[in-house]
């Protein structure tokens, strides 16, 4: 009834960089966090620009 549409049960890839050893899924999550953070910083915030200003 609720089988995964994308099967993540296969082995993950790993990224080695010096002593750092990250799984690709974790790397995706970490990169996504930075990207979302940056977008939230720079994206224009709608609606409130002309309000409450002297």
């Amino acid at each position: 009834m609720f089988a995964a549409i994308i099967n993540l049960n296969g082995h993950a890839g790993y990224v080695h960089w010096g002593f750092i050893d990250l799984s690709v899924p974790n790397l995706i999550v970490i990169v996504a966090m930075f990207v979302v953070f940056l977008i939230a910083l720079v994206a224009p915030f709608p609606g409130h620009r002309r309000r409450g200003r002297s």
Partner: peptide, 15 residues
């Protein structure tokens, strides 16, 4: 292997 933050399969773990 930094295994503490990994998960079985290709799922994100406890990052």
């Amino acid at each position: 292997q930094w295994g503490m933050m990994n998960e079985t399969g290709s799922f994100p773990g406890q990052g």
